[in-house]
Design a protein around this nucleic acid. Structure first.
Lengths: 236, 236
DNA sequence: CAGTGGTCTAGACCACTGG
DNA sequence: CAGTGGTCTAGACCACTGG
């Protein structure tokens, strides 16, 4: 039973993948442009482009429009926990950039997650999280305002769990999370320097204090090609 | 600051997404063909196709080549645990199809995961896991042969954990897993009835007995558009 | 201003499915 | 055998970046 030959775009993707894994194309180096690749292989630009899009979806390369396409770094192993700690554990330098921070009237989803009652407010903030300067995730976090007076006046950089522990005596001991793969929308893709509709991992999570109180609700949107998640679970 | 209009393929994707979320296009119903969509909207087929590929990567629709494109079901909420139990918890019917089962000399990765010594063999098997008849995951599982004599002669259907408990007294109490997003290769994509290079979630996991012995190593490859994962973690 | 990727056109041929 | 999605061509114009 003769198998049909693989389509051209997959053969080209395999060639490039081998060159990346073999070290001929090293981290950060530029791939040939779509036009050059097409010409040198005798295919149309759309076919060369298709091959590169496969590698992009696999996380091997990333676009830096309109400068070119470059070989990506290997993935960061992450656990559900402190972003700063997890990145540092991999030997990379964690970083963050505050996008916004404000007091809000919570939406229904946030109210329920934090078990808020009456007219309780929340302190909300969004940060871009980086590793060695590269965008990894957009983190949107909500804390009960009653539990965190004056939080918005603090420097919201680094580990928020450390800040909450030192400032308010709130200690994170347990987290509950949901992970799903989504396509990045226009705004998120731009912030993460990713391609529109590239795969992202949306982590929706709640963090609990020693006494079982949920003190944090967060939605973290990761570039799927930059991380892998490690989890432990009691089963049976 | 006037913003540029969104590209045509994104506007078309949004239109279709709204129709799906609004119920005008219900689960299982067919989308217009790429050619029909292109003609009715006055764009080229490649542009209509691009829009549908966005929805496919978001999990809203799936292809059933060459029959057409159809509206997908909502995602299954999964935890690290028994596939059968998790699917049943959602009210769907779990199913499986045995792809192969055999005794093997373990690879280095399997040997290390199961902490095997000397010339210890493993019982290996691969199953397609389904929910209401739809392919959800390909599960490749390894058990120490010494722990599971005669396993390959058993009917390898349903929950393997139940089988191991009843037959060998091995009880799953803890699991450790890694989740990463990958692109589906040709074989996996075909088995999962997914598009080549569509996003998959590779779950690499180890399961432990009451006494802390690792008795199972598995690689589960999920269609990313069919599931979401829920996890709990001790942190700090 | 040269070169990049992003988008788009208007075609073509293919394998495969179901009626 | 009609119709589908899968692949591919050979072009085009665009916004944007860096030198």
């Amino acid at each position: 039973m003769p198998t049909r030959p693989a389509p051209a775009y997959l053969r080209i993707a395999s060639q490039l993948r081998d060159q990346i894994e073999g070290g001929e194309l090293s981290t950060g180096s530029a791939l040939p442009s779509e036009r050059d690749l097409a010409e040198s292989l005798g295919v149309s630009r759309m076919t060369a482009r298709h091959a590169i899009m496969v590698l992009e979806s696999e996380g091997y390369v990333y676009r830096h429009t309109p400068r070119g396409t470059f070989v990506a770094s290997p993935r960061l192993p992450m656990r559900i926990g402190s972003f700063s700690d997890e990145v540092a554990r991999s030997g990379a330098e964690p970083g963050d950039e505050l996008l916004w921070a404000e007091a809000q009237t919570p939406t229904q989803a946030v109210r329920e997650a934090l078990a808020l009652r009456g007219r309780a407010k929340v302190h909300a903030m969004q940060r871009l999280r980086t590793a060695d300067g590269a965008a990894v995730a957009i983190e949107t976090t909500y804390f009960p305002a009653a539990l965190t007076p004056g939080l918005l006046a603090e420097p919201l950089t680094g580990s928020l769990w450390s800040l909450l522990r030192d400032r308010y005596g709130v200690v994170a001991v347990h987290a509950s999370a949901s992970l799903e793969v989504v396509a990045l929308d226009e705004v998120s893709a731009r912030r993460l320097a990713a391609r529109l509709a590239a795969p992202g991992i949306l982590v929706t999570r709640r963090t609990f204090d020693r006494d079982g109180t949920c003190f944090e609700f967060a939605r973290d949107l990761y570039r799927a090609d930059r991380v892998e998640f490690r989890v432990d679970a009691q089963v049976g």
